[in-house]
């Protein structure tokens, strides 16, 4: 399945957000995930099913706020 993650097209076998984070080796605790412009609650990571062409954003906290990259 092909999805867009942080602006890049990616092939993934992940079925849920939890799978995707595991595949990307991202610890869920300190990130937030958005799918198609909706923030997904951490409690829903196991249940939320990804679909073809989903637009996924995974963000975290960085030193702020300089005017650096933005999505």
């Amino acid at each position: 399945m092909r999805v867009k993650i942080n602006g890049e097209d990616k092939d993934t076998s992940a079925k849920t957000i939890a799978d995707l984070l595991e595949e990307l080796e991202i610890v869920p605790g300190r990130v937030a995930v958005e799918v198609n412009y909706n923030v997904i609650k951490k409690a829903d990571y196991n249940n939320f099913r990804l679909k073809e062409c989903d637009i996924v954003e995974i963000v975290y906290f960085v030193g702020g706020g300089d005017k650096d990259f933005k999505f």
Binding site: G7, Y60, F71
Partner: peptide, 19 residues
């Protein structure tokens, strides 16, 4: 302390985390 929200680098996961 104030922080900004930005994309995680999904290709280089070794980068350190501010927290």
């Amino acid at each position: 302390v104030t922080v900004a929200v930005r994309r995680v680098n999904i290709t280089d996961r070794k980068s350190a985390n501010l927290l």
